[in-house]
Design a protein around this nucleic acid. Structure first.
Lengths: 261, 261
DNA sequence: GGTTGTGAACCGGTTCACAGCG
DNA sequence: CGCTGTGAACCGGTTCACAACC
């Protein structure tokens, strides 16, 4: 989530927890698969397994949508597919623009999951004049000069930013000014937007770093093998750290005398 | 589930909250930018703004790492960069394999943020023999037959899956069997892995659906009443389902074909 | 003065366990 | 019976606000 608050004006009626909303697409995917196999009903247990969550959580999630199940039986697959789709707003068509048609943008344009589920790539936009007119994934790239016009004409409210980090904020500002109120950001930058605009980010490098953290810990936990290869440190002790870490240090003493040098 | 206990074996000492870990990369990025501008110190307030969080949260996060700040002054940028890097395990080199060199895989291979920060693309792997040997982002693609060998030889512990959903689980299984213990999954599937293996997923379509949910709500909030447009509803209420169980829905059930798939 | 570090209150979300119902 | 729906306990994380310290 980005800056400011946008949510819940005390509207307790439509109050679906954010965590639940984030899982609905997961349930929907599992249900769609069941639907394709013509499975008529599922129990919370089965569906939960397919979605990779536990059944209590799933039932609680569904309870926010209403009582769509049948005790002793389970959930009607088709019915639930429809209810979740509607709740997520997928019964309507969402035109989306992708800005920045580099490797990533091109990959996104061709991504299958994009076209499905009510999302439609309304336009591909790039600042490079050499790209203009070139079809990518069957859609001709348009020049960013026309960004505002494109958004207005197609009534686009969702924008995907796949530009270099350096221009992401500028692109974001233009998108927002043109009327976009939801942004999916692939650029490694923190975007700031006015209230009422939602931003979600997808950041490869952050994900990898989180994995590295756990990976490192796994290595350190193993028997004998001691962690912390402790590479050469960029020598940068805290300015006036002279008097030692007298008081508290960390959760538990951290490494002895943090001194890199 | 052998021990039921998975990760975090009562990690009392090194107990950094998961939410904090997820933010460290963000702080690191902001700090790196400051470092490049030769800024010597930052206050929690400034750094928090740059990272898009609030300062209390940032200070609390840092408190889990240790007392690395100076009261009345702030944090030493270089020192903090080092400490966070070390905490995240970025002071060592992490060889990574990318499996599935389609549009997305190729984009990832060339992604800048990948190479930086201690991650190194050790190999690109694809099942298509026509791809074998072809250089992508300067790295020759290898055939998936050699997956196990590649992982063993390079000591790869992090794998990125960018294959079609249909083969993602199979690829995952092979990666894990070969010794990979952290997986970043771009395929729209729930992967199941044994205990001790971490999986993080990046799912474009889920992100879009979450945005659509909020977008829909924004549209509905404007007027005083929240009566949804309500498209043609499917006849499948749970109540009347008493005996209808046997008569299955069959091919085009009664629900509007909301999605292609 | 300024800013960190942190106990304590608070809040959202998860899990438990069982009542309710088919 | 079996399975859903949900109140209540629980837990992790966020925010508050202030004491500790430079």
């Amino acid at each position: 989530m980005a800056t400011g608050r946008t949510h819940r004006p005390a509207t307790r009626s439509r109050g679906i927890p954010e965590a639940t909303v984030a899982r609905l697409p997961l349930y929907l995917r599992a249900l769609t698969a069941l639907s394709e196999r013509s499975v008529p009903t599922v129990s919370s247990e089965e569906l939960a397994a397919a979605a990779g969550v536990n059944s209590a959580k799933l039932r609680k999630d569904f309870s926010y949508l209403g009582s769509y199940g049948t005790r002793g039986v389970g959930y009607d697959v088709e019915y639930l597919v429809y209810q979740i789709s509607r709740e997520l707003g997928l019964t309507q068509d969402w035109p989306v623009v992708i800005v920045g048609i580099g490797n990533l943008g091109a990959a996104l344009a061709g991504y299958g999951g994009f076209a499905s589920r009510g999302f439609r790539v309304a336009a591909l936009i790039d600042a490079d004049p050499a790209m203009t007119g070139k079809p990518v994934a069957g859609i001709p790239v348009q020049h960013s000069d026309d960004l505002e016009k494109i958004i207005a004409e197609d009534g686009v409210s969702i924008g995907v930013i796949a530009t270099p980090a350096g221009v992401a904020q500028a692109v974001c500002d233009r998108l927002v000014a043109a009327g976009v109120t939801s942004i999916l950001n692939f650029a490694p930058t923190v975007l700031s937007v006015p209230d009422g605009v939602d931003v979600r980010k997808v950041d490869l490098s952050i994900e990898l770093q989180i994995l590295a953290f756990h990976e490192q810990r796994k290595a350190g936990e193993e028997p004998g093998e001691d962690a912390a290869p402790q590479a050469a440190a960029p020598a940068a002790p805290p300015a006036a750290r002279t008097t030692a870490q007298g008081g508290r240090k960390g959760p538990d003493g951290d490494v002895p005398a943090v001194m890199p040098a």
